[in-house]
């Protein structure tokens, strides 16, 4: 299901926790699986659950509780825009609107070419850099004015 590299990464996470507490690695393992597969199909969740010796539904509970896991396929670049109050005050909603019109999609939609998925995010803990958006859960971009957004979209193949 997952590559050897991913399994090695998961093993490193498991080693962080005391013996008998493999389940603690489920969040990391799901993130690693998602990083490899771009989203979390049911089989991946089940694989992780079995690997960690936990019931698949318990792993699914986790995958569906934390909102950075994607239980549906997403585009190559998932852009999560924070629209929470501090960002809103500094143009977060406008940035989201700008992205919507540029990409021609709404929140939770993917461009027809599969390049971008747009998500509405909650506070990312970077309000001083508003407007803030997150690329593929990993790369935080702050102070996203129109020019910065244009450049970002150009850079993301």
């Amino acid at each position: 299901m997952l590559t050897k590299e991913s399994i090695q990464k998961i093993d490193r996470e498991i080693a962080k926790y005391p013996a008998g507490q493999k389940q603690s690695a489920v969040m990391a393992a799901l993130a690693i699986a998602q990083e490899e597969l771009d989203w979390l199909p049911g089989e991946a969740i089940e694989f992780v659950a079995n690997y960690l010796g936990m019931p698949p539904i318990a792993a699914y509970e986790v995958a569906s509780f934390y909102n950075m896991y994607d239980l549906e396929p997403v585009g190559r670049h998932k852009l999560t825009v924070c629209t929470n109050l501090p960002c809103l005050l500094s143009g977060g909603v406008d940035a989201a609107g700008y992205l919507k019109s540029k990409l021609g999609i709404g929140f939770n939609e993917t461009t027809p070419d599969g390049r971008f998925t747009l998500k509405e995010g909650e506070c990312m803990g970077a309000c001083g850099d508003a407007p803030v958006l997150l690329v593929n859960n990993r790369r935080m971009c702050g102070r996203m004015q129109p020019e910065e957004i244009d450049k970002l979209l150009e850079d993301l193949e």
Partner: peptide, 8 residues
């Protein structure tokens, strides 16, 4: 554990 409470 066959049933769980998914989402939040």
């Amino acid at each position: 554990m066959e049933l769980g409470m998914a989402n939040r």
